[in-house]
Amino acid sequence: MRIVCAKDCARGMLMIRNVFPVLTVVAVIFGIWYLACVPMNIKTALTEAERAGATVSTPGARERRDMSAIGLALANPAQWRDTFALKKPRLPAPHQVAVELWQTTVEKKITSKRSLVFHGWITLSATLLGFAMGTVGGILLAVGIVHSRAMDMSVMPWAIASQTIPVLAIAPMIIVVFNSIGVQGLIPKAIISAYLSFFPVVVGMVKGLRSPSAMQLDQMRTWGASKSQSFWTLRLPSSVPYLFTSLKVGIAASLLGAIVGELPTGAIRGLGARLLTGSYYGQTIQIWSALFATAILAAGLVAVIAGIERVTLKRMGYGK
């Protein structure tokens, strides 16, 4: 017990030790971000300032087009403030993104077409459905592979090879094919998600089910355990850590699949659609807030699985 505590305490110490450097790095990133806003947005800011009647160092948007942004920024310190408050900046300032995120999540009703919670749920539901399908399918195939040598030899090389090809490229086609047989919305996206999480789960699960050592399997044999007994009492529990590692990869892949599934068909709902419509209409703040929503969602999903992993492994006595 003492050792466990010492380990936990050490981990706590480590996290505290890391907080300051991490915060510093994050602060530096935000600092660079703000700094970058000035040269990135200065041309738009100058154009708008001119329209409003201000005098700027080089008049005329056309004359300024090929000039150095940093030079323009240095020559027009009066417009620096404007670069953080443009409607369609090339690079929105962090607070603009934060405000947009706040407005579209907390202040909008979640049934509104402009609510990020609404779009996030569209994407999340497809992600979760696909993830569940992919995981169940992957585990079943892995069990089959471990128990049938023919299946192992036939399927496993393809499962491994398929991880090297950009399966995401078929996402648009799946959407269209399902569309042409009259299925729209959730299901096609979920299928892309399932497909993307399927193979990581298969490969990880096969590894896990095979992780018991020859000695442990021999021990089972000395007790006269049947195949199913050694599956339920040895192979399956041994595979759990491997399964969770795959699940973390799988859920991230599922989310990616759902987002890409929203891109090609001019979908109007979902986080992917927010990215796409944002890029059509030059709504950069919308793109960035959708991007951050995606990141928060991804981090949240991985964190949930990591949390379940920690509790499960602790209960199973894997320590750590």
Partner: peptide, 25 residues
């Protein structure tokens, strides 16, 4: 200690979402 946790975090994100921004730039 500062950059690595951030890197680990970012590595798990769907970075392909930056595509519209980078295409614009």
């Amino acid at each position: 200690r500062g950059l690595l946790p951030v890197g680990n975090f970012v590595a798990a994100l769907p970075i392909v979402g930056t595509a519209p921004i980078l295409v614009m730039w």
